[in-house]
């Protein structure tokens, strides 16, 4: 999966948990919580969704690494390549 595909997958997952999100309007480097009003339930739903579509299990201690679009994509890239 290319970085841009992975980015799109992540944004799709975001829209899946918060249907009113406007992914194009997101600043990739700014905190998601500030831009989207995500609560812990949304975050859990996001992690569940990422698990469904990518097969990646994000442990709770790594949740902070999903705090922005860029960080999340980098983290997921690492998780996918570590899995091989």
């Amino acid at each position: 999966m290319t970085p841009s595909e992975l980015r799109q997958t992540f944004l799709d997952a975001l829209v899946h948990v918060a249907p009113d999100a406007e992914p194009d309007a997101l600043d990739p480097d700014a905190p998601l919580r500030d831009q989207m009003d995500l609560d812990s339930m949304d975050l859990l739903n996001l992690v569940i969704r990422l698990n469904e579509v990518l097969g990646v299990e994000v442990p709770e201690r790594d949740y902070p690494r999903l705090d922005s679009v860029s960080h999340a994509v980098a983290y997921l890239e690492g998780a996918l390549s570590a899995r091989g």
């Binding site: 812990s40 339930m41 859990l44 569940i48 698990n51 299990e57 709770e60």
Partner: peptide, 17 residues
């Protein structure tokens, strides 16, 4: 909760709430 969630599958994790 942290221990419990480490054991649980992603879809079954619990929130403090």
């Amino acid at each position: 909760l942290a221990e419990e969630n480490a054991r649980r599958a992603v879809a079954e994790r619990l929130l403090p709430a």
